[in-house]
Design a protein around this nucleic acid. Sequence first.
DNA 1: TCTGGGGTCCTTAACCCA
DNA 2: TCTGTGGGTTAAGGACCC
Length: 437
Amino acid sequence: MLHLDLDAFFASVEQLTRPTLAGRAVLVGGLGPRSVVAGASYQARVHGAHSAMPMSRARRLVPAAVVLPPRLAVYRVLSERVFDVVRRIDGAMEQISIDEAFVEPSGLFGAGPDEVLESAERLRADIRASTGLTASVGAGSGKQLAKIASTMAKPDGIKVVPQGTEKDLLAPLPVRKLWGVGPVAETTLRRAGVDTIGKFAALTLPEVTALIGNAIGTELHGLAQGVDHRPVAQRGEAKQVSAETTFDADLSDVEAVRRAVAEMAAHAHRRLVASGRAARTVTVKIRGADFATKSRSATTPTASTNLATLAATARRLTDGALPDSGVRLIGVSLSGLTDFVQPPLFEDGTEEADEANARSAEPAEPPGPVDHQVPERAWRAGDDVRHTEHGHGWVQGSGHGRVTVRFETRNTGPGQARTLAVDDPALTRADPLASLD
DNA sequence: TCTGGGGTCCTTAACCCA
DNA sequence: TCTGTGGGTTAAGGACCC
């Protein structure tokens, strides 16, 4: 079984489509005061920056880093290209995120380490040739092992764990390397004197489950004994769709909170409809200034696609969960999803009433917060732009009425930076996907 | 140092029902 | 009618993953 993991994916895509950034420290993440790092190039990691770290801290660690907001649309396109290559392999594939997948090539059944190595090397070369991205591959007898191996292979490498060597490989590793052991379980285990996978493997099943819980305990205990029979199988559709936002400063006004809930409901609803599903359960999530998170949910007998219905539920739930202090985060999640079959037109059964309603209500919905009265927002670092003369580029920075743009795309090689007037009529916003050409 | 946004799954408790 | 018992569902909170 193989685990394939793209190296520093978000940052690597930025370096690929903006060639000036190749070899430089890049941090991908929000620009706001409360954002965290979503991706860091290896040149940034050298200084201690990593994913999930508060961006403020990462910037302090790597003052020279270029900080860019994520361009998910670009990452999605490249991810698809990568996994199209992977899918050409005969066998099962399970994509587990935008940049990771398990693969079980039928040709490798019963193969020796050399054959596995060769096959993985070919896969990496194919991915590199067709996308320009590097992937690391781990190979082992089960999911956990393949995953741990790919981590050890990074960056741009391969690690094959031959049959029979599993325990020797795992024993010295910190228990935190196990997929499923996070900060809490790590602390619990450390307090019990268990800091390596070897020591963990020596525990009995009852000891393990008492420490870290039944489900994960049973699974990880089995793994430590070399038992990992989870199949590689394609994932189904999402079971939940949600939208949430953290405010730059806590909200104290109840009306502002309600507006935010309505916005998040609309955002989640948009994606619900796009996925062709209906939801039975609405959950509102509220995080207070003290970081304590409350959730309130309600389930209705029939699923709905109606924004007004879902948003009204969200609003009602909000009022029951407001903290005394300010509000830091608002989220709305829709679950209990069912495929939404468009009801037949002249049916008058009461069951379909809600959905029929939804159908007629949908087109009347505002398409989004579009307001042409509002002046276009200033250029922000990372924006894709197009200039009638210089072509496609990206904004490096702006201020004092000027904007600095680096004109380059994947295929131009490193480009020139030019400083222009912010209101230069030759300069317009551009589709980020154009940076792939 | 001060903690995102999108998810999955697990645990516990309460409740309804057969 | 009372007392278990056990399944299924809902709700709330958390751990964990990328």
